[in-house]
């Protein structure tokens, strides 16, 4: 079946040093998250800030540890399709549910 094969679209995965850097970054962000939580003055921006940081963490794990940055874009698309679909339909459902009461 080799004739129709498109060339593999995977690039080399990073090595341990880069993984450790990512992990240190993740640890620091987690620290910041907990810090924000205890910060008395930050109540008004707490939710958006925490959500932003969790998106950063989510993306770092996805891009580096799950290799989405290096592997074929198909994987990214399937995964993002699931995430976006979930966000949209559950947001709509929640809005109608919360407005109902």
């Amino acid at each position: 079946m080799s004739e129709a094969v498109t060339p593999p679209v995977e690039h080399a995965h990073p090595g341990p040093a880069e993984y450790i850097k990512v992990a240190v970054f993740l640890a620091v962000v987690t620290g910041i998250e907990v810090g924000i939580y205890y910060l008395k003055g930050a109540r008004s921006v707490l939710a958006p800030a925490l959500i932003l940081l969790s998106i950063v963490k989510f993306s770092m794990v996805g891009l580096y540890f799950m290799h989405l940055k290096f592997d074929t874009h198909l994987f990214r698309r399937v995964f993002i399709l699931g995430i976006v679909l979930a966000l949209i339909v559950y947001a709509v459902a929640l809005v109608t549910l919360l407005n109902y009461h």
Partner: peptide, 24 residues
């Protein structure tokens, strides 16, 4: 394979996409 990627990896990503709906 047609896409030059491993079947198992494709399937597990499909499964993880499905899991997003579950945890969502």
């Amino acid at each position: 394979t047609s896409l030059g990627i491993d079947n198992r990896k494709l399937a597990i990503w499909a499964f993880l996409g499905s899991e997003c709906m579950f945890f969502g």
